[in-house]
Amino acid sequence: MSNTRPVWLLIVSRAAAALLGGYAFSYAATAFLARVLPMPAVDAVIVASLPSFAFYTCAFLWAFASRDALRAWWPAALAVPLAAVGFWPQLWSL
């Protein structure tokens, strides 16, 4: 962690990246999977949702393992394109 900012701020930032960014990432990844899985929608819902907590755990760990506090937010950034695929029909109709 860099020394320019107070330590507590960095910790809060990482914790937020882990909890909120991690949720955003796992939410988007689940929506993405549900959309692209080649199976009936009813099954896709469950097959995509079951691993979602593993996604969350990985993003959570990433937020604390990444080299600097900015990189901790990568999963949250990745959520945007994933969500765009997951929700493309809804986006299309806007």
């Binding site: 796992s26 939410y27 988007a28 689940t30 929506a31 999977l33 549900a34 959309r35 929608a41 896709a44 819902v45 469950i46 995509a48 949702s49 079951l50 979602s52 907590f53 593993a54 997951g86 929700f87 809804q90």
Partner: peptide, 22 residues
Amino acid sequence: TYTGLVIFLLIYMPAAVDALFE
């Protein structure tokens, strides 16, 4: 721990239902 989360699967993670069933 994991199966505990799965009990409320769609409450915790409504993403797939949101995407496919609005």
